[in-house]
Simulated scan of single mutants.
Amino acid sequence: MTEIEHPETFHGLPVLTLPGPAQSHTAPLPAADSVAWRLESAWQGDLTFAALWQHFVDTVDTAQVRALLIGPWWQEEYESFAPVVDLLVGHADRIPALKALFLADVVSEECELSWFEMSDITPVVEAFGQLEELAVRGCDEPIDGKEPFGLQPVRHKALKSLRFESGGLPSGIVRAIGASELPALVHLELWLGVAEYGGDVTVEDLAPVLSGAAFPALRHLGLQNSEIQDEIAAAVASAPVVAQLESLSLAMGTLGDEGAEALLSGQPLTHLTSLDLHHHYISDPLVDRLRDLLGADRVNGEIHEVEDWDPEEDGHRYVAVSE
């Protein structure tokens, strides 16, 4: 899972993985509001996530917890995330100060992104009306008996940052975001992924976001990791939302010369403080033109994993994160 790592900080706080009840931990735990707590039950013997959660609420003053990350929650097999959602929602009143939540902080050494499936996260958004930051990682590869990865349109007054990291983001989630009332939303980042892993988002699905009307406070927009990145760039080139942005990311996808030309011939981008295009397939002359337009310090055009890509030998383009 390229570009996916465990964050060292979350919501401005250092991340601390809570030791399980069977782990030796002689030092006292820090103040509950001084760290972002990470919970993981996998590979801890017979410890279930439910038991770890009970240990969390018994050991930590959860009324003071400000940030929480959910790591691997399964035991022997990759289990549905739905029971974790139920625990979070059922104990929402015990975490009244929670401002930031990361669902499925899992990296490839623990489980490939396409191997674990998220459930419907709407109840979490509705239960934590004070949340300011929500990050969600996962794909949608429906399996019998598992609730599909989903989101319904919601109204949330506090949410400022929303990020979905996926190798295949369902179009229903993008449509639900566009239909939601999120008046405080400043940062929106969507890793759209590929069709092979459930990513079926079209430019039409992005229309409410691109219109600028949905989120008047939006200042950063990331439409990333897509196999239709040229189409998205062409839509962004004339999208009203761009005028209100301070930064824009079209990184991690299959962006090529067609998309770059659309950006160069479209509406002005000179007001942006940052244009992130890393992991792209744009020819050097067009990268130079983009840098000349905005200034080299404001365009991240590094190629990363596709630096050795040769269109004559391998015409297929790859997104940065899929499986």
Results as ranks from 00 to 15, higher is better:
270 T>F: 03
160 K>D: 02
144 D>G: 11
188 L>G: 06
229 Q>M: 07
158 A>Q: 10
276 D>H: 12
143 I>G: 04
209 V>N: 01
157 K>N: 12
153 P>G: 15
172 G>P: 05
269 L>V: 02
253 G>C: 11
220 H>Y: 11
223 L>T: 05
255 L>R: 15
238 S>P: 08
231 E>R: 07
152 Q>I: 07
230 D>E: 13
211 S>G: 13
171 S>L: 06
244 Q>I: 00
175 R>S: 09
271 H>Q: 15
221 L>M: 04
160 K>F: 02
159 L>V: 07
145 G>D: 10
261 E>I: 09
202 T>I: 06
158 A>R: 11
249 S>L: 04
254 T>Q: 11
195 A>W: 12
209 V>A: 04
209 V>S: 04
274 S>A: 15
226 S>A: 15
263 L>G: 11
156 H>Y: 11
207 A>H: 11
215 F>E: 00
257 D>A: 11
228 I>T: 04
153 P>A: 15
161 S>A: 12
197 Y>K: 02
165 E>Q: 11
214 A>N: 03
155 R>P: 03
181 E>V: 09
144 D>E: 14
153 P>Q: 15
242 V>P: 08
246 E>H: 14
234 A>F: 07
269 L>T: 07
203 V>N: 01
187 H>A: 10
240 P>V: 01
266 G>E: 08
148 P>S: 07
241 V>I: 15
183 P>T: 00
253 G>F: 01
246 E>K: 14
260 A>I: 10
210 L>S: 06
150 G>L: 02
251 A>H: 13
183 P>A: 02
143 I>P: 01
194 V>S: 09
213 A>N: 13
247 S>E: 05
261 E>W: 08
172 G>A: 10
237 A>S: 14
206 L>P: 02
143 I>K: 03
260 A>D: 08
207 A>Y: 08
162 L>T: 08
208 P>I: 01
228 I>L: 07
169 L>C: 09
157 K>A: 14
232 I>E: 03
245 L>G: 01
167 G>D: 03
163 R>G: 03
265 S>M: 10
219 R>V: 03
238 S>Y: 14
202 T>M: 08
149 F>P: 02
165 E>K: 12
208 P>Q: 05
269 L>F: 08
165 E>S: 09
171 S>P: 01
177 I>V: 13
184 A>I: 02
175 R>A: 03
214 A>V: 03
147 E>F: 10
157 K>I: 04
170 P>H: 10
215 F>T: 00
194 V>L: 12
144 D>C: 10
214 A>F: 02
182 L>R: 06
186 V>E: 03
263 L>Y: 05
178 G>C: 04
261 E>M: 14
233 A>Q: 06
220 H>F: 11
183 P>Y: 04
187 H>P: 08
222 G>K: 04
158 A>T: 06
198 G>L: 00
228 I>E: 02
176 A>L: 02
198 G>V: 00
163 R>W: 02
182 L>D: 01
276 D>G: 10
273 T>A: 14
265 S>A: 15
271 H>P: 13
155 R>A: 14
189 E>D: 15
145 G>L: 05
228 I>A: 07
222 G>Q: 05
256 G>A: 15
168 G>C: 03
163 R>M: 07
233 A>H: 01
222 G>A: 06
251 A>D: 13
172 G>K: 08
158 A>G: 04
179 A>L: 07
223 L>Y: 12
240 P>E: 05
193 G>S: 10
224 Q>T: 14
215 F>Y: 02
256 G>H: 12
229 Q>I: 07
223 L>Q: 13
